[in-house]
Nucleic acid binder design. Structure first.
Lengths: 166, 166
DNA sequence: CTTGACCTTCCCATTATGGGAGGCGCCACA
DNA sequence: TGTGGCGCCTCCCATAATGGGAAGGTCAAG
């Protein structure tokens, strides 16, 4: 099948399929017309990728998972380690976001939200508080390792609805 | 003061200060040597920006907050609306991440994690499950509006420790 | 043979941040 | 007065994942 059909079958856009090929995640055969050709096995790989992305794995991890999946002699320990590291990163990020939300909600709770200019939210942003929120993310300990600011890609599967939002 | 000192005083890198100027967030005077010059008021703005970023506001929102802060005739209602919209986005994203983490942890719990190749994590990625996680993010409803896949910037304040992680 | 749907490659935009090169200013010390 | 080192300047590039769009080739149906 051609790329369009593979895209429909896998839930990954043609654009992204080409991109995944460009970065070496997958390979595709070519037909006489130099169109990309995909087999059912290729579609299965694409679906694997999509599932991994839905769970928030960055493409680098997806590549490793894909290599493990292809390798019949793999050790499940390695997969599990990748997964648990990712779980830790997800949870750390979720916690960090929740902390931000909570801080901000506290501030908003004290804001009248009317036509007057007085606003504790702005006052807090301008002033005193130094790093209550910031420190929360680090308050655990080992979470920092798996946590380069974009370790967790996010936006896993909201893509399907993106066009409608704009 | 020069940009380096302003950076130290505000906690924003000189690189970023220049960038914020380039995108019109802030303005800076110039000295005779065409070096940027910062006043205490400028540093206060930079700190404001940093606090807003620590709370996860995207720069676009920071710009609006900054404009509101500068405007003595603002209505606090507008600030509050911005804040609460952002809280909603943060919470939605946090929930989505937690859902991913939970799904993945379930999978990992069933994985032996030893030298054998059998691995339910890979099996699940390869196969059956279609979109349990994906649907969770949308299960609310109005959260989608404030939620273009990168509505929530993340990585608010982990920057200070980034060099050490590498 | 034309039309339209599909494919190709290449370039650009997004978000926020950092790295680095090449060049100039400035201060202190010899 | 010369010079070294540090700070600053402006550009360009890279990151992660995705989309948009242009310019052009291909194929099938009418």
């Amino acid at each position: 099948m051609n790329i369009g059909e593979a895209a429909r079958a896998s839930g990954i856009s043609a654009k992204m399929i080409r991109h995944y090929e460009a970065i070496g995640l997958i390979a595709a055969g070519r037909g006489a017309n130099h169109y990309r050709v995909y087999s059912q096995a290729d579609v299965a790989e694409l679906r694997f990728i999509r599932h991994a992305r839905d769970l928030g794995f960055p493409l680098q991890d997806v590549k490793r998972l894909l290599d493990l999946w292809r390798n019949r002699a793999r050790a499940s320990a390695e997969v599990k380690r990748l997964a648990l590291d990712h779980v830790a990163a997800l949870e750390a990020k979720a916690k960090s976001l929740s902390a931000m939300a909570e801080s901000l909600r506290h501030l908003a709770d004290h804001c009248h939200g009317d036509a007057r200019p007085e606003c504790p939210i702005l006052e807090e942003l301008a002033g005193a508080f130094s790093s209550q929120v910031a420190s929360l993310g680090d308050s655990e300990n080992a979470t920092k390792q798996a946590f380069s600011s974009q370790a967790v890609p996010l936006g896993g599967s909201e893509n399907a609805t993106k066009k409608q939002e704009r």
